[in-house]
Protein backbone atom coordinates (compact mmCIF):
# COMPACT_ATOMS: atom_id res chain seq x y z
CA UNK A 1 0.00 0.00 0.00
CA UNK A 2 2.78 2.44 0.96
CA UNK A 3 4.46 1.84 -2.36
CA UNK A 4 1.24 2.45 -4.25
CA UNK A 5 0.66 5.66 -2.27
CA UNK A 6 4.11 6.93 -3.24
CA UNK A 7 3.63 6.05 -6.91
CA UNK A 8 0.22 7.66 -6.88
CA UNK A 9 1.56 10.90 -5.42
CA UNK A 10 4.18 11.05 -8.12
CA UNK A 11 1.55 10.43 -10.78
CA UNK A 12 -0.76 13.10 -9.35
CA UNK A 13 2.03 15.68 -9.36
CA UNK A 14 2.89 14.78 -12.92
CA UNK A 15 -0.60 14.62 -14.39
CA UNK A 16 -1.79 17.80 -12.67
CA UNK A 17 1.47 19.61 -13.37
CA UNK A 18 1.92 20.67 -9.74
CA UNK A 19 5.18 22.48 -10.22
CA UNK A 20 7.60 22.62 -7.32
CA UNK A 21 5.68 20.01 -5.35
CA UNK A 22 7.26 16.78 -4.08
CA UNK A 23 5.49 13.56 -3.02
CA UNK A 24 6.32 14.26 0.64
CA UNK A 25 4.43 17.57 0.43
CA UNK A 26 1.18 15.64 -0.01
CA UNK A 27 -0.29 14.28 3.21
CA UNK A 28 -1.68 10.74 2.83
CA UNK A 29 -4.93 11.69 4.53
CA UNK A 30 -5.36 15.36 3.64
CA UNK A 31 -8.24 16.24 1.34
CA UNK A 32 -7.14 16.67 -2.26
CA UNK A 33 -9.88 19.13 -3.15
CA UNK A 34 -10.66 22.63 -1.99
CA UNK A 35 -9.10 23.34 1.44
CA UNK A 36 -6.48 20.58 1.17
CA UNK A 37 -4.34 20.57 -1.94
CA UNK A 38 -6.65 23.13 -3.55
CA UNK A 39 -7.66 21.07 -6.56
CA UNK A 40 -10.86 21.66 -8.54
CA UNK A 41 -13.35 19.87 -10.80
CA UNK A 42 -11.04 19.85 -13.83
CA UNK A 43 -8.34 18.19 -11.73
CA UNK A 44 -10.94 15.57 -10.79
CA UNK A 45 -11.48 14.89 -14.51
CA UNK A 46 -7.71 14.58 -14.95
CA UNK A 47 -7.60 12.02 -12.14
CA UNK A 48 -10.44 10.09 -13.78
CA UNK A 49 -8.30 9.81 -16.94
CA UNK A 50 -5.32 8.79 -14.79
CA UNK A 51 -7.36 6.04 -13.09
CA UNK A 52 -8.39 4.58 -16.42
CA UNK A 53 -5.05 4.93 -18.16
CA UNK A 54 -2.81 3.60 -15.38
CA UNK A 55 -5.12 1.26 -13.47
CA UNK A 56 -7.87 0.35 -15.93
CA UNK A 57 -10.55 1.76 -13.64
CA UNK A 58 -13.45 3.49 -15.39
CA UNK A 59 -15.21 6.00 -13.17
CA UNK A 60 -18.44 6.97 -14.92
CA UNK A 61 -19.88 9.57 -12.60
CA UNK A 62 -17.73 12.61 -11.82
CA UNK A 63 -19.73 13.29 -8.64
CA UNK A 64 -19.22 9.77 -7.27
CA UNK A 65 -15.55 10.05 -8.23
CA UNK A 66 -15.16 12.79 -5.64
CA UNK A 67 -15.60 10.17 -2.91
CA UNK A 68 -12.74 8.16 -4.38
CA UNK A 69 -10.56 11.27 -4.49
CA UNK A 70 -11.04 12.18 -0.83
CA UNK A 71 -7.38 11.65 -0.09
CA UNK A 72 -4.42 9.81 -1.57
CA UNK A 73 -4.96 6.96 0.88
CA UNK A 74 -8.63 6.52 -0.08
CA UNK A 75 -7.62 6.64 -3.72
CA UNK A 76 -4.96 4.00 -3.22
CA UNK A 77 -7.37 1.72 -1.36
CA UNK A 78 -9.90 2.06 -4.14
CA UNK A 79 -7.25 1.22 -6.73
CA UNK A 80 -6.15 -1.86 -4.79
CA UNK A 81 -9.70 -3.18 -4.85
CA UNK A 82 -10.67 -2.31 -8.40
CA UNK A 83 -7.56 -2.26 -10.56
CA UNK A 84 -7.40 -4.26 -13.77
CA UNK A 85 -3.91 -3.02 -14.75
Amino acid sequence: MEELIQTLKQQIIEVLNLEGMKPEDIDNDAPLFNEGLGLDSIDALELIVLMEKKYGIKLQDPKAAKDVFQSVRVMAEYIEQHRSK
Partner: peptide
Protein backbone atom coordinates in the same frame (compact mmCIF):
# COMPACT_ATOMS: atom_id res chain seq x y z
CA UNK B 1 -0.36 6.42 -29.02
CA UNK B 2 -2.98 5.60 -26.39
CA UNK B 3 -6.03 5.36 -28.64
CA UNK B 4 -9.27 7.21 -28.00
CA UNK B 5 -10.59 7.87 -24.52
CA UNK B 6 -7.46 9.24 -22.86
CA UNK B 7 -7.46 12.89 -23.90
CA UNK B 8 -6.33 15.03 -20.99
CA UNK B 9 -9.12 17.46 -20.04
CA UNK B 10 -6.64 20.28 -19.34
CA UNK B 11 -5.09 19.87 -22.78
CA UNK B 12 -8.49 19.93 -24.46
CA UNK B 13 -9.77 22.97 -22.64
Amino acid sequence: DDGEGYVKPACFM
